[in-house]
């Protein structure tokens, strides 16, 4: 059996070695191979989808994507932070002065022009996703002792973005205002976010 290695053939017998016999029907093979290849590629693509889709939010995650907040205990001037989809949501009971300050601004000065009226449902309740639009840090300004930035709203300590009392970007690197999540008042003192 030792000769196995030695006698192993060096040159293979390729299709071309069969000469003219192979030429006949070459066209049909090409078309057939093309169709079969296309089928196989479609199949492989279809196989990829379940894998990709399995990484999208699952049904239990989607089911929890609403959060209800009771507003009754929040005094004027106070703010609370609630969790919605794993992110902090700022709920601020604004004072009349804060509302006035937010509405007096000349929109032309803003980087991301948006009137305060379009950012709230009821003027005294400001609800925003507390994630800086720059690189995702959580701005300061919820606690009374927090720095609130130069415009009396929020200040992001990561890269120094300043937001006003309507959560609009006024200074610093962030490109856009703090986002307002979809929410609705389900009663006078209760909102549902999401």
């Amino acid at each position: 059996m030792a000769e196995t290695l030695a006698t192993h053939p060096g040159t293979p017998l390729g299709p071309e070695a069969h000469g003219a016999a192979a030429e006949h029907g070459e066209k049909r093979r090409d078309f057939l191979t093309l169709v079969t290849g296309a089928f196989a590629v479609v199949g492989a693509g279809a196989i990829a989808w379940p894998f990709i889709h399995s990484l999208n939010p699952s049904r239990d995650v989607l089911a929890l994507s609403t959060t209800e907040v009771d507003l009754a205990p929040i005094q004027v001037g106070q703010a609370v932070t609630v969790v919605w989809r794993g992110k902090p949501v700022f709920v601020r009971h604004r004072t009349p002065q804060e509302i006035a300050a937010a509405r007096e601004v000349n929109l032309a000065e803003l980087r991301d022009p948006q009137p305060d009226e379009r950012r709230v449902i009821k003027p005294e309740w400001l609800v925003m996703v507390g994630v800086c639009t720059h690189l995702g840090c959580v701005p300061l300004g919820q606690k009374p002792t927090d720095p609130k930035g130069e415009y009396g709203g929020w200040f992001c300590p990561c890269h120094g973005s300043h937001y006003d009392t309507s959560g609009r970007i006024r200074k610093g690197p962030a490109p856009a205002n703090l986002a307002v999540p979809p929410y609705a008042f389900i009663s006078d003192t209760q909102i549902r976010i999401g």
Binding site: T4, P9, G14, P15, A17
Partner: peptide, 24 residues
């Protein structure tokens, strides 16, 4: 790929006439 495959006859290929290229 060092020894090459066995086959149903269990004898070694004696030359190119006994083999085909793996592809196609």
């Amino acid at each position: 790929h060092v020894t090459g495959s066995n086959n149903p006859l269990g004898i070694d290929p004696k030359g190119p006439q006994d083999t085909v290229p793996f592809h196609p």
